[in-house]
Write a protein that binds this DNA or RNA. Sequence first.
DNA 1: TATATTTGTTCATTATATTGGGCGTGAGCG
DNA 2: CGCTCACGCCCAATATAATGAACAAATATA
Lengths: 110, 110
Amino acid sequence: MPRQRSYSRVTREALAMLGKLIRVGRAQRGLTAQELADRAGISRTTLSSIEKGAPGPEIGAVFEVCSLVGVRLFDYDERSLQMHHARLDEKLTLLPKSVRRTVKEVDDDF
Amino acid sequence: MPRQRSYSRVTREALAMLGKLIRVGRAQRGLTAQELADRAGISRTTLSSIEKGAPGPEIGAVFEVCSLVGVRLFDYDERSLQMHHARLDEKLTLLPKSVRRTVKEVDDDF
DNA sequence: TATATTTGTTCATTATATTGGGCGTGAGCG
DNA sequence: CGCTCACGCCCAATATAATGAACAAATATA
């Protein structure tokens, strides 16, 4: 069965931007594509895809590259990252563990 | 050649957090895993991997899911997203187009 | 300007993510 | 309390991403 996916405009734009952010970050640090790829443990070809904003690459590889060139996804520093983790866990325990379709009401408190 | 990758702690944490954010967002919207997966054009199995914070899934799929449950990676709204695009393009044209290893100097102005 | 190097691209092969189905469990609703 | 449905997990088959090599073209330095 073919996969045949389609991506929303927002997704495509976000991917393109992330790629550019990485590219800029790499340039600012004076890193060669090969160097950065090596450090991230991926091939230069894959890094190229990432910088082009392709939807295919593994998210783990992309995040790894991001951390290497100083692109932070959620603009949290590491400490607050921990905090948010705790918060989210809290939230998750409070939330219902399975979603019933009959439940129509949802309020966006965040 | 085996791939054999390793991910930094930051990457792993970011992935875990993103997964939790998605999970919370989905719950808040009262969406079934199957429903969300359908809308994102992926299988429930893959969505499960994403929510678990696995490094493997395609970044396109993850971003698609994010946009569906209201998790924004860069806290830019769509409009400023355009702006940032322009800025990045500008920056890219100014930056050298290939990186020379002999260039030792790098200044982090961002 | 000459030259070494970085980058962009393609391609066959290999590794791996995705899929869809099924099963058991537990949570939420009547 | 009982029943239904959402979820977590496993698996085989298949689609696809990752790799590494190779080549051309562009680009930065001497």
